[in-house]
Design a protein around this nucleic acid. Structure first.
Length: 817
RNA sequence: GCGGUCAUGGCGGAAUUGGCAGACGCGCUAGAUUCAGGUUCUAGUCCGGGCAACCGGGUGGAGGUUCAAGUCCUCUUGACCGCACCA
């Protein structure tokens, strides 16, 4: 007997050994000149929080690394980088809470994250590590902002924006979830501020249309599409009685119902409200506006949908039939959407109907369902609500048209009179891009009294974030930078005169909107990246991360990529060809988080079971896209498998058996099965394939295992368990890394058998199993089935009314009862 | 309210897309080894009946299409996700 200790799977020594070798040989460096086809596999880079990694974070990183190594073995030059999304609220709030300068706490957190990430043994090329908070990086984030400014895509506007009273900063619409701050959960208020905005709405149509070209989960595409919220309709202008020079502009998706507009509603914040309200109504209107402002965003939108409102005393003229219609204000009309004003058609809109009932306003039917001749009246004497299709009525000149025809013709007729125009409206708003916080990229704009706002020229970038003692948010609507004279006071790049710097910073999402471009050329100090390198590596072939960024990062990154494309930097205009959202890991049914106290620490798991075992369990725990409940027993199962596999290999590695057909057949079948499962990304079942294979090899091991089998195991296991793969490969006598090897292919010939066992069914129930030639035709298969003695008793004396053979699977005989 | 996803043993989950339901792992039962225990190995394990061969039932529920349904269709129950007065 050989030394027993060599048979045991000593994962700790083994893993340390290979990690040292990989480090020493810079095994994970990308070779730009290999001549191999490229593959870009990217993780959503983390913001380095103080909490460190748990086994849930491991899952996505493991999936992407297994995939990267698989692609490498398939002959691709794989770019698999990692970096830090280090600017922004999470990092800054953590720093404030700890009382440590964000630069310092961020550096500490990065060091800790990097140590923990190293445990995964992913093939990250750390030579390409990037950090969005370093001047070498954010110089270029600022550069792209100046380019947007020059193109009119970055502009300043005074408007009420979302404000988080706890984080003391303005927020983008995308950062407000259910009326609360996405970061801290505090209820968001409105604040009138002069803001930097990015004109993402100019790209709305492209962002929507190009979704079709992406290999992304349908769910994420639906979310982005809903967020963009394109709707076609018309602008219509209404004259106001006794008010000259002003018209009310509304947006409607149902211009066909214009004749049924019996009143109008303005949002309480609408600028015309004060102008048109009559003296008699002034008190009630002002009272209602005050009430509305008191209501928070939540109660206005979610909790209470009862219709309230106030009459302004003013009347508008319906341009279609010249009727006087009252103008109301109500909080069910939102200033943020469309024009902040609507024409109300109570007969054909649920909300308008409720409002009309509540305030006893007239309801006029203008769309009648197909096949109905007479008007219908409810018990309360009102026409019923009808939102579906039908034909126009009570619309002189348009009666009898369908809804679709009506939309076209009414708009055409009104447009001819200059009171309407077909148009498209989006739900998506422009991107509020300024934050009144310290820890972000300073917005590179200089205000000159003579020349106006000027972009900081490229040769003066980066505008460095000053190193200061006090970085607490002020809450006044000004950034902490505003108090730093030496930062604020500067000279105008155009006229050289005294000028002031913009003191707001960029949001957390700025740096991550183009980081995937920097990885291809991370040390370039002349350009954000080399266009040649970008066009060589991008778009990203596989982007892996959580679904929580569906309408934040993923939308912003697409927008930036399109802008950068339009600036002439790249040929592509979509960054991520294939997106994969991994499911989260739960414990006791809920997402792991430090605050819930249900985190499983990967450091402990690595210590007890090893890196390879934890990697494999992260996949084996369930389908990669589904949420999965953590179960340490499952980890033990995988660990046992690795021990068995290791033992099986080590028993045979020094004197492999000669090749034989039974092993060759098993091997090709395993490879076929593994191939199928890898290509369909069913990584949990790929692990099962290994278990099935080694179980089958266990039965063969009495006669020894051949070298081809052992090499196959080494190569195919290595994406999952890279240390074990390398070890086996080396023990087989190879001097180069297993990752220099080629993923083995299978031969269809070995998948075939001379005979095959099929089921014989009577009326769809399995009654026997028979062995037949695999190339048997229908006739002979059915003959064999009938000849079977178990089947004989089932068909004896009965009429067979149908018989069929599904090749290689089953025979079904249908008999009359 | 609108849109979407899903439901399979004691548990996590398989099922080449309409063709033998329950692969693989966990857990459990029995035995062997070691023995202080764990480890390791062998066999069994959807439910009911039977010593057994075998028989009957079975993929949330009710119908339907089909020679054949976890898979397709209709209705229904429950869970989860996204959006939510978007004109």
């Amino acid at each position: 007997m050989r030394c027993l200790w060599r048979m045991e799977y000593q994962f700790r020594q083994l893993e340390e050994k290979w990690q040292r070798r990989w480090d020493a040989s810079s095994a994970h460096r990308v070779n730009e000149n290999s001549g191999k086809p490229k593959y870009y596999c990217l993780d959503m880079f983390p913001y380095p929080s103080g909490n460190g990694l748990h086994v849930g974070h491991w899952r996505g990183y493991t999936i992407s690394d297994v995939w990267s190594r698989y692609k490498k073995l398939q002959g691709y030059e794989v770019l698999h980088p990692m970096g830090w999304d280090a600017f922004g609220l999470p990092a800054e709030n953590y720093a404030l809470q700890q009382g440590v300068h964000p630069a310092k706490s961020t550096a500490q957190n990065i060091a800790n994250f990097k140590r923990q990430l190293a445990d995964i043994s992913a093939m990250y090329d750390w030579e390409r590590e990037i950090n969005t908070s370093e001047p070498e990086y954010y110089k270029w984030t600022q550069y792209f902002f100046t380019k947007m400014f020059e193109r009119g895509l970055a502009y300043r506007k005074k408007m009420p924006i979302n404000w988080c009273p706890s984080c003391k900063t303005g927020l983008a619409n995308e950062e407000v979830v259910d009326g609360c701050c996405d970061r801290c959960g505090t209820e968001v208020t409105k604040k009138e501020m002069n803001q930097w905005m990015l004109k993402i709405t100019a790209y709305a149509d492209r962002l929507l249309q190009d979704l079709d070209t992406l290999d992304w989960p349908e769910k994420v595409k639906r979310m982005q599409s809903a967020w963009i919220g394109r709707s076609e309709g018309a602008k219509i202008w209404f004259e106001i009685e006794n008010v000259e020079g002003e018209r009310i502009e509304v947006f409607s998706t149902r211009p066909d119902t214009l004749f049924g507009a019996t009143y109008m509603v303005l949002a309480p914040e609408h600028p015309l409200v004060a102008r048109i309200t009559t003296d008699a109504c002034k008190l009630a209107v002002e009272d209602y506006i005050a009430q509305t402002l008191k209501k928070s965003a939540i109660s206005r939108q979610i909790v209470d949908k009862t219709k309230t409102g106030a009459f302004t005393g003013a009347y508008a003229i319906n341009p279609a039939n010249k009727k006087r219609i009252p103008i109301w204000i109500a909080d069910y009309v939102l200033m943020d959407y469309g024009t902040g004003a609507i024409m109300a058609v109570p007969a054909h809109d649920e909300r308008d109907y409720e409002f009309a009932v509540a305030f006893d306003l007239p309801i006029v039917e203008v769309i009648r369902p197909e096949g109905q001749d007479e008007p219908i009246t409810n018990e309360d004497g009102r026409p019923p609500l009808h939102v579906g299709p039908g034909r126009l009525v009570n619309s002189p000149g348009f009666d009898g048209l369908t809804v679709e025809e009506g939309k076209r013709e009414v708009v055409a007729a009104m447009a001819a009179q200059g009171v309407a125009e077909a148009t498209v409206t989006y739900r998506m708003r422009d991107w509020v891009f300024a934050r009144q916080r310290y820890w972000g990229e300073p917005i590179p704009i200089i205000y000159c009294d003579d020349c106006g706002p000027q972009a900081v020229p490229e040769d003066q970038l980066p505008v460095r974030l000053p190193d200061v003692e006090s970085y607490q948010p002020t809450g006044t609507g000004e950034s902490p930078l505003a108090a730093i004279e030496s930062f604020v006071n500067t000279t105008c790049p155009k006229c050289g005169g005294p000028a002031r710097r913009e003191t707001d910073t960029m949001p957390q999402w700025a740096g991550s909107s183009w980081y995937f471009l920097r990885y291809v050329d991370p040390h370039n100090n002349k350009q954000p990246f080399s266009p040649e390198a970008a066009d060589r590596w991008l778009p990203v072939d596989m982007y892996i991360g959580g679904v929580e960024h569906a309408v934040l990062h993923l939308l912003y990154a697409r927008f930036f990529t399109k802008v950068i494309h339009d600036l002439g930097w790249t040929r592509f205009d979509e960054p991520f060809q294939h997106l994969f959202n991994q499911g989260m890991v739960t414990l006791n049914g809920s997402k792991m988080s430090k605050s819930k106290g249900n985190v499983v620490n990967p450091d402990d798991m690595v210590r007890d079971f090893g890196v390879d075992a934890l990697r494999m369990y992260e996949l084996f725990v369930g389908p990669p896209e589904d949420d999965a409940e953590w179960n340490s027993n499952g980890l033990e199962g995988v660990s046992r498998f690795l021990s068995r596999a290791y033992r099986l290999v080590m028993q045979n590695v020094d004197s492999p058996a000669p090749n034989r057909d039974s092993l060759e057949r098993l091997r090709h079948r395993f490879l076929a099965s593994l191939h199928e499962r890898m290509e369909t990304f069913r990584l949990n079942t790929a692990i099962s394939a290994f278990m099935e294979y080694t179980n089958a090899l266990g039965a063969e091991s009495a006669n020894g295992i051949d070298k081809a089998t052992l090499e196959t195991l080494a190569i195919t296991l290595s994406p999952f368990a890279p240390h074990l793969g390398e070890e086996i490969w080396e023990r087989l006598g190879h001097r180069t890394s297993v990752f220099e090897a080629t993923w083995p292919t299978y031969d269809e010939e070995w998948l075939k058998d001379d005979t095959v066992e099929i089921a014989v069914q009577i009326n769809g129930r399995v009654r026997a199993r028979i062995e037949i030639a695999s190339d048997a035709n229908d006739e002979s298969a059915i003959r064999s089935a009938k000849a079977n003695e178990d089947i004989a008793s089932w068909i004896e004396g009965k009429d067979i009314i149908k018989e069929l053979y599904v090749p290689g699977r089953l025979v079904n005989l249908v008999v009359r009862q």
